[in-house]
Write a protein that binds this DNA or RNA. Structure first.
Length: 271
DNA sequence: CCCCATGTTCGACA
DNA sequence: GTGTCGAACATGGG
């Protein structure tokens, strides 16, 4: 489910517990979400007794700080959720990690287990966090950076490039389709065939869609306005929300992911 | 039973 | 080494 705005929504859920101390940690060591764990798995317990004092996101990545004890990194994969449950919560089948506080339980829930848990002991921010690429709303997300990326990947269709977390951290399938729809760019357009104006537009729209998504979704998972592609892209039979268009939307698989676009507004450049 | 899902990673190949 | 692409991962919902 989660792209940058949904991830921020979940961050806020756990952030409500900032200032609380972890009394007990529970986890299922064999769960796939602990794959590639960089420390002995029982080191998760070092968070026990520590106080949650920070909650951050970076694209789709989450990082929770526990004072000098260490850092807990989470990725929500395709189906991950963060919840707060009552203090006596009994972990369900897909509750892979729980932090029991005095007045509530923080739960990491992920049925498909494409998500991931990481831990880094000590007060210093982990390298895998500090080395993340610039977020799309950061001043370091520059036009020049994007230009270089498009040049290197000029043979690839634009849609999969928007899903590349090294270039567009936090952008996922629905935001990528939204950006391309607003920019009137066909998802299969090779990056090398985008006009200068399209590349420029795409850079701006990436920031615009990220801002819009955060505004609407992050506070309370609000509903997207009907003039976004968002509300029309999921089911068959959707129509382009542009008032003067209303054409039936197209849906097709591209590089293993479903793309949705308007065949009237978004046309492939002929070459 | 079938198909689909807001993600990442690995290996094959050119 | 670099870029492109299909498959695999695991589960649930319609």
């Amino acid at each position: 489910m989660p792209e940058l705005a949904e991830v921020e929504f979940y961050r806020r859920i756990w952030a409500e517990a900032i200032g609380s101390t972890v009394r007990e940690v529970g986890f299922h060591p064999q769960a796939r979400v602990f794959r590639g764990f960089d420390a002995p798995l029982d080191s998760l317990n070092l968070v026990a007794g520590a106080t949650l004092d920070q909650a951050m996101t970076h694209g789709k990545q989450l990082l929770f700080g526990f004072g000098p004890s260490g850092w807990l990194g989470l990725h929500l994969g395709m189906s991950g959720e963060l919840r707060t449950e009552p203090e006596n919560h009994l972990p369900g089948r897909h509750d892979h990690l729980i932090l029991r506080l005095s007045d509530r339980t923080l739960v990491f829930h992920d049925p498909r287990m494409f998500g991931r848990v990481r831990l880094s002991p000590g007060p210093t921010l982990p390298d895998w966090w500090t080395q993340l690429p610039p977020e799309v709303l950061s001043p370091l997300f520059t036009r020049a950076r994007l230009e270089q990326f498009f040049l290197r990947r000029r043979g690839s269709p634009i849609k999969p490039l928007l899903l590349d977390q090294l270039a567009f951290p936090g952008i996922g399938n629905w935001m990528a389709d939204e950006i391309l729809w607003r920019g009137r760019i066909h998802p299969a357009t090779p990056a090398g065939q985008l006009t200068h104006a399209s590349r420029d537009h795409l850079w701006r729209l990436t920031q615009e869609v990220a801002g819009d998504a955060l505004r609407v979704i992050a506070p309370d998972w609000g509903e997207a306005p009907d003039d976004w592609l968002f509300n029309h892209r999921w089911k068959n039979g959707g129509h382009c929300p542009r008032p003067k268009c209303r054409s039936p939307l197209a849906r097709e698989e591209l590089r293993g992911r479903t793309s949705c676009w308007c065949p009237i507004c978004q046309v492939l450049p002929r070459s």
